[in-house]
Design a protein around this nucleic acid. Structure first.
Lengths: 270, 270
DNA sequence: CGACGGGTTCCATTCAGTGGAAGTTCTTGG
DNA sequence: CCAAGAACTTCCACTGAATGGAACCCGTCG
C-alpha cells in the first residue's frame, strides 16, 4: 500500500487504516445484527457491536447513540441493544415486499386453509431465495425457513422454481459454483439441476423431497406479473411420508395462478 | 414531511447553518420515504429526496449513493429511488415485531378462518396503535389500516384496548390533547373516553362502530404476556350492518387468549 | 479491597464530508 | 433541428465534524 500517506501507527503492528465512510460505519453497526443461521433474533452489548463492526469502542458508542436517537436501534433495560421499531416500520414499506405480500396474502391464506400445511412465498434476490411470507398452523413440521430468511436456490422448492425462470446468465452463474449438499437427497450436480429446471418449466411445478430438511417435501409453483415474468414462487411444505396427493399440487397451482392473475397476468402465452 | 430543514438564516440573508451530523442527514434521507397518510408506498427522485430531507443536492447525491450501496435504497430503472430490500430484511428481524408475529400468526389465521373478516394485530407505540399484522380475504371492507401503519388510539378497536391497559400517565397525556373526530360517531370527549376504557378493562373487549371508517365496526381484545401485561391487541373489523353476532366476540376473545397463553400468560389474576 | 470488564466522557488533531459551481445528460417545445 | 431547461453527476478547495486514545466511572467478582 504505497498509494496513500495515511495515518500510521508508530507501533510495529502497523494497524490497517480504516477508510470506511461514516455511512459505511453506521451500516456496519446494523449489519452486526444480521441474524446468523436460523437462530432467533438477538441483542448485542456495545462491546459486541464494536467487535462485530470492527470499530473502536468510542466511535461505536457515538454512532450507536445516533441509531438509538433515530429509532433504528433500541436500548433495552439490561443495556443490550436490538434492532428498533423504526427499522421495522420502514422495512415493511419496501415496495417489492409490501405490494407482493398485500396482493398474495389472501391467496396464501386460501392455500393454507385447504392444505393446512406450511405456505411459503419467496422471491429471487441475488443468489438466494428470500422468504417474504410464511404461514403455518400450530402443529406443522419444524422448518429452517422464516420470514426474511435466505435459503439456497437448488435445495428448496421455491428456489428451484425461481431458478427455472431466471435469466440464463443467472442460472449459468449459479451452477458454476459448487452447490452445497445438505442431505443425501440434495441434487447438486449441475446437469441434473438443469434437467430439473427444464422439467419445472415444462410442468409448471417443482417437487422436492428431503433435500433441505429431513422428513419434509415441498411443492412449488411460479407467480407471474402482468408481463409474464416470474417474480415470485409459492410453495407448501409437507411431511414426506404423506402419500402424494394430487389435490395438494392443484391447490398450489391455483394459489400461484390466483396471485398471478391479481398481478395482472393474463396467460397470454403458454 | 415533518421537521422543517434545520436552516437558520442569519440576519441579512447570511448562509444557513445545518448542524446535523452525518448520521442525522442519512436518517433524514430515509425519513423522506415515510409514506404519508394511507397512500401506497412510493418512489422519489433525487431532487425530491433533497427537498424533503432539506439537504443540498450534491450532498444528497453522495449520501443516497451510500444507501444504495448498502441496499437500504434501490435505484429503479426510471432513475427513481425507493426503499431497498435490505431494509426489509433487517426490519422483519426486529424482535418485538418478529416474536409477536410468529407466535400470534397461527391464532390470527384461526380467527380469520372462523370469522372471514379483517384481522388486526397491533401494539402501542408512542401515541399510536402500530399495526403489526393484518389478514384479510379477497372481498372484505376497504380499510385505512395496513401493516406498518399508525392509527389513533381513540378511534380504533385495538387502539382503545391498548389505551385501556396503558400506564395512567400515558392515558393522561393522550387525553390531554384534543382528539380528532373522524366521523360523527367518534368519541372524543376525554371523560367519555375514560368511561369506555373502564368498561373495556371490565369486560375484556372493546366494541367500536363507525368511528374511523364509515360502514365498519370492530371488536378488539387484549393480548397479555407472561407477566400479565397487555402487550398487544387483536381485532376483527366487520360491516356495521351485520347483526351483532356473539360468536364473533367469542372468536376474538379466543384468539387473544390463545396468543396470551402462547406468550406464557396463565390467567393468574383477573 | 483491588482488579477487571464493560460503558461513558473528553478533547486535540486531522481528514472525511461539505456544497457551490461547472459539466453532463435527457426532455420539452419552438 | 437547436435552444432552454430540468435533473442529475462530478469536481475540488476548504474546514469543522468525526475520530479514537486516554482518562474516568461503575458495578461485580474473587
Amino acid at each position: 500500500m504505497s498509494g496513500k500517506p495515511a495515518q500510521r501507527l508508530a507501533s510495529g503492528g502497523g494497524a490497517a487504516v480504516d477508510d470506511r465512510s461514516v455511512a459505511a460505519r453506521l451500516f456496519a453497526i446494523l449489519d452486526a445484527f444480521a441474524t446468523p443461521a436460523g437462530a432467533t433474533s438477538f441483542t448485542l452489548s456495545l462491546t459486541a457491536i464494536a467487535q462485530r463492526a470492527g470499530l473502536p469502542l468510542s466511535t461505536t458508542h457515538r454512532l450507536v447513540a445516533e441509531w438509538v436517537g433515530w429509532g433504528g436501534l433500541t436500548r433495552q433495560d439490561n443495556g443490550q441493544y436490538s434492532l428498533g421499531m423504526k427499522l421495522w416500520e420502514l422495512g415493511v414499506q419496501t415496495p417489492t415486499a409490501r405490494n407482493l405480500r398485500t396482493i398474495a396474502l389472501p391467496y396464501l391464506e386460501d392455500l393454507y386453509e385447504t392444505t393446512r400445511e406450511h405456505v411459503h412465498l419467496a422471491i429471487l434476490d441475488g443468489r438466494d431465495a428470500l422468504y417474504l411470507e410464511k404461514l403455518s398452523g400450530h402443529h406443522a413440521v419444524r422448518l429452517t425457513s422464516r420470514v426474511g430468511a435466505r435459503l439456497p436456490l437448488h435445495s428448496t422448492g421455491v428456489g428451484l422454481v425461481l431458478l427455472a425462470h431466471a435469466p440464463t446468465d443467472v442460472v449459468q452463474d449459479y451452477l458454476a459454483t459448487s452447490l452445497e449438499r445438505f442431505l443425501p437427497g440434495t441434487v447438486t450436480e449441475p446437469d441434473a439441476v438443469r434437467r430439473r429446471l427444464a422439467e419445472i418449466r415444462l410442468t409448471g411445478v417443482a417437487r422436492m423431497s428431503e433435500e433441505m430438511t429431513l422428513g419434509s417435501s415441498s411443492i412449488a409453483a411460479p407467480i407471474r406479473d402482468r408481463t409474464g415474468l416470474v417474480v415470485a414462487a409459492v410453495s407448501i411444505v409437507i411431511r414426506t411420508t404423506d402419500t402424494a396427493n394430487p389435490e395438494q399440487e392443484r391447490a398450489v397451482r391455483v394459489a400461484a395462478q390466483g396471485v398471478s392473475r391479481a398481478l395482472g397476468y393474463r396467460r397470454a402465452q403458454q
